[in-house]
Write a protein that binds this DNA or RNA. Structure first.
Lengths: 241, 241
DNA sequence: ACAATAGTGTCTGTGAGACATTATGCA
DNA sequence: TGCATAATGTCTCACAGACACTATTGT
């Protein structure tokens, strides 16, 4: 079409991870402090380049997930989020990054000393505030990831991925409250998740807590898409004209 | 981390387009017949490589949209779908493709003679049937694109993108019926879209048709996300255990 | 007994779906 | 007048949200 000698340009392929978890009833994201240029010393999402030309992209995401956070595949939700590839987003050349969204159950401090020179959980509110100054376009990526998680909570069973293998209903409720940033009536929530066919199923007897009546335990059910969905009261959306 | 001499591998970046429209009350997709290897002569989604290292990915999508289908940006919905980059999906090397979903109002036969040696609209049912044999992993991409369109119809105003600048309510209904493959009660549909704040707004007087009472015309409203959503009766989903 | 959380029951408003009815054009 | 489609009204059932109430633990 153009020159006979024209060949398409090549690009560097990177993976970025938005790893969300719940800590202390707050939605947290895993951030690392960059050890190399560009943006040396600044906070960034964990990630890296494709290792070699034969590595699958999803495999690279899993590899980075392990290298930078010490997490491996089991009990972990991992899904493609979007591609970010604007020219100039990385000074090292044309870098196209595939972002993945990972949801992990509540975890203690991350394993340090692997790849990243310092990884830490950070509340997303804080990471998204103007003061945080994430590297590259990672603020956009994080924002997209959080919005995706919020949305998927509505009509999929994603919420169970934030919990351990078994959980109580009020623990599940805390997931919704933390991710959506709203308060939910426990009685209505209880009925709703119970009725939602295949969402959760009974597991073991009860979990005793320090105070109050012990709660029954549940595990994630077989159904991934919820019917009916968990409508969050979306009272301020759309274009305000 | 590994060798001092290690450099990340480079890949070729491609764009693939899932261009959907409505023709004769059927959901159609634009396909081209490949003029070059690999998969020469087979049907494929329109697409191509990044032109140069400075081109934005979205710009490349718009460029291909024009080159291969003669469509340009106005009155056109275009959104990122996903990335497909498995090794071996293209024999020319490691090709990572960013798929875009485009929705166009009903259109006549596409402009031939630009880039693709023959482009044509094809009913999606037919394109997805086993007999079609699309090139590369384009069957998967098309399938993902259609599912995305179906899903977005529920809680966004995407349906209006299938229509012209003005449309009647029954035309809008035909969009839903065609994309979802269901029948909808016209009276209930009428009330529902009317009540949905900001979805559609009156435009001009009426459109006369060959038969029956003329219908009022509407245009797309300012609101993109619908509240309440247009629930399609999702009676068979999730994992059947 | 009391505090605290788990779990159940009841009421009310709203919307979805089924379907009758009226309105407005043309042959 | 008859036909076809547009537009509106009515009914019923199911569910969301509000909230009173009972149950079961520890102190």
């Amino acid at each position: 079409m153009t020159d006979d000698e024209w060949v398409p340009p090549q690009v560097l392929l990177a993976i970025d991870l938005v790893i969300l978890t719940l800590r202390d009833n707050q939605l947290n994201v895993l951030l690392v402090q960059r050890g190399i240029e560009p943006y040396r010393g600044q906070l960034a999402l964990p990630g890296g380049f494709l290792r070699d030309a034969d590595e699958r992209i999803l495999a690279a995401a899993h590899r980075e997930l392990f290298e930078e956070a010490g997490l491996h595949g089991d009990h972990l939700h991992l899904e493609q989020l979007a591609v970010y590839g604007d020219p100039g987003r990385d000074t090292r050349g044309r870098v196209v990054s595939v972002a993945y969204l990972a949801i992990a159950p509540g975890l203690p401090e991350p394993e340090a000393g692997t790849d990243a020179s310092g990884a830490c959980w950070c509340p997303v509110d804080q990471a998204l505030s103007a003061a945080a100054q994430l590297a590259f376009d990672h603020r956009t990526i994080l924002s997209d990831g959080v919005e995706r998680a919020r949305s998927k909570l509505e009509h999929t069973a994603l919420a169970t991925a934030f919990c351990g293998p078994t959980f109580t209903i009020s623990e599940l409720q805390q997931v919704y409250e933390a991710v959506w940033g709203v308060r939910i009536d426990p009685r209505n929530f209880y009925r709703k998740v119970q009725r939602s066919e295949g969402f959760i199923e009974p597991a073991g007897p009860v979990r005793k807590s320090d105070t109050g009546r012990p709660a029954r335990l549940f595990r994630a059910g077989p159904r991934q898409v919820l019917n009916p969905p968990m409508t969050r009261s979306t009272d301020a959306e759309g274009t305000s004209r």
